[in-house]
Design a protein around this nucleic acid. Structure first.
Length: 472
RNA sequence: GCUCCCGUAGUCUAGUCCGGUCAAGGAUAUCGGGCCUUCGACCCGACAACGCGGGUUCGAAUCCCGCCGGGAGCACCA
């Protein structure tokens, strides 16, 4: 029995991959069950809960092929925690501390006990009832574990177990005022939910010790812990709070904006969840923090989509090219949809003496002889003025010469294309007519540009054809 | 500062627990070549690593000690 516990503050992104795929891996391998437990205790002013995230996260897990066997909300489980707190108090292992937060922190750092530390179970129980009964306001009292004030790790000295908060919780409102903190709540829930193995990030290793300390006090045996280190993708500068702000303000195109590196954004880019799974699991469960170039993920994805992505032409920032001497009989060509897989069929592509070429291609090869791929050879003009929208070239031959090969689109039936880039930029240009008949969500390869995925809400026949860039 | 963790090629990883089969394997990147119509894929080849110093041992990437470097945690957040 495994569990994952995301804090519902945003869509799941590639940095959360280890939580998802590692847990799911163990579930499958040992035929276990995987719970999704929303860690939605009340949070803090800085860490607000957004109720929209619950569904968002469930969808993300579904998308990753890691849907949970059951879903729990911490906020529903709060009443379970109070009896446990009582048991800890009765074991004389906790006390109610009414020091201001500042003083508490200072005392902890210096290893000095707060006055209430010596209080007996009776008094603690009485004060605890007072906490539950509303005798104290937020910040006026906490329940602390009595550990060892000389513990070398200051973080471990008399941790706070419960605190008082009157924040309005999106699911349960103000039903509870006394909220457990992470370690205590998991000490309870891992037992009550029957969790047998905890696999979580290494940022939570200290919490292992806390949970174990609580279990020891109560004489229960809890599950073992496994941890993974941080996984960063070099190109992905992920900031959940920034994403949150930009999504809310509309600067980003929702949670599927490529800049979020969320799973839904990666899906939109045509990155197969299986590639993400394989990519993530390839790092094992190492405790080291790692940074991997996105290229590694792209390579993984390429092996999946390359065999099925149909090839299409797209020219960015097009320039109109008149080809003098163009053989008039060559009005169209029939091209394979995939160079290595004839079974994927062919399509007819219109050609002609007037064609569109990508400005960049033209600029790089000015004055040179090039091959318009699958068509003819031409000599490009020697110069192209900045901002020029047309140019002329000269037909040289039909023969398949070994020249730089450039993409082109017919002036007769080229269609407008709007390609959304990884940085949220829009790259506009023209694509070949066959794009109009591709279904939404189709993954294609724009030759010499990269793999793209048609946006899910595109309609065949409607211009501009909108696509999202995946990777080279 | 304190606590814990981690150091194998540019990057990620296998091997470390139980020393020899590791003159270190794979992936990715890069470079070269092939494939005569993609800057993609595929095929072939090249490049390139056990952080440093001691010790134990017939033998150390693997065990021990020290050092150096990197990371994470140190909330009345999760």
């Amino acid at each position: 029995m495994l569990r994952m516990a995301p804090f519902p503050s945003g869509a799941l992104h590639i940095g959360n991959g280890r939580m998802i795929f590692v847990n799911d891996y163990y579930r499958r391998r040992y035929d276990g069950r995987l719970l999704l437990v929303f860690d939605d205790t009340v949070g803090s002013e800085e860490k607000r809960l957004d109720p929209e995230m619950f569904d968002l996260i469930r969808e993300d897990l579904e998308l990753c092929g890691a849907a949970p066997d059951a879903v729990y909300y911490k906020s529903d489980l709060i009443p379970n925690h109070y009896p446990w707190a009582r048991r800890v108090i009765e074991a004389h292992a906790a006390y109610v501390c009414t020091c201001p937060a500042e003083l508490l922190r200072r005392n902890r750092a210096e290893g000095r006990p707060c006055p209430e530390r010596s209080q007996g179970s009776e008094a603690t129980l009485e004060a605890w009832e007072g906490m539950l009964g509303g005798r104290y306001g937020p910040g006026e009292a906490v329940l602390r574990l009595r550990t060892d004030l000389s513990d070398p790790d200051p973080a471990f000295r008399d941790r706070v177990l419960f605190r008082i908060s009157d924040l309005d919780h999106p699911r349960v409102g103000r039903r509870y005022r006394v909220w457990p903190l992470l370690e205590f709540s998991w000490a309870v829930d891992d037992i009550e939910l029957g969790v047998t193995h905890v696999v979580r990030g290494k940022d939570l290793v200290m919490e292992d010790r806390m949970q174990q300390a609580i279990w020891r006090i109560l004489g229960v045996t809890g599950p073992p812990f496994l941890h993974w280190g941080l996984l960063r993708v070099r190109e992905a500068k992920i900031s959940k709070s920034k994403s949150y702000a930009e999504v809310k303000s509309g600067v980003y195109d929702g949670w599927a904006d490529p800049r979020t590196w969320s799973f839904r954004a990666l899906d939109r880019r045509g990155i197969d969840p299986r590639a993400l799974r394989h990519f993530t699991l390839s790092f094992g469960l190492s405790l080291a923090d790692i940074e991997v170039p996105a290229e590694t993920l792209y390579a993984e994805n390429r092996t999946l989509i390359d065999p099925k992505a149909l090839r299409r032409s797209f020219v960015e920032d097009p320039v109109r090219l008149e080809v003098s001497g163009y053989p008039t009989s060559l009005a169209s060509v029939v091209l394979p949809n995939h160079p290595d897989r004839p079974e994927l069929g062919t399509r007819a592509v219109s050609a002609g003496s007037t064609l569109w070429l990508a400005r960049r291609d033209l600029e790089v090869h000015l004055g040179g002889e090039v091959r318009l791929k699958d068509l003819v050879n031409v000599r490009l003009p020697a110069r192209l003025d900045t901002g020029a929208t047309s140019a002329t070239a000269e037909f040289t031959s039909l023969e398949n010469k070994r020249l730089p090969r450039l993409q082109w689109v017919s002036a007769r039936d080229g269609v407008a294309v709007d390609l959304l880039g990884v940085e949220g930029e829009h790259r506009t240009g023209l694509g070949e007519a066959a794009l109009l008949s591709s279904p939404p969500g189709e993954v294609l390869q724009f030759e010499r540009v990269g793999f793209v995925r048609l946006e899910a809400d595109t309609r065949p026949g409607v211009e501009p054809v909108r696509a999202c860039f995946g990777h080279p």
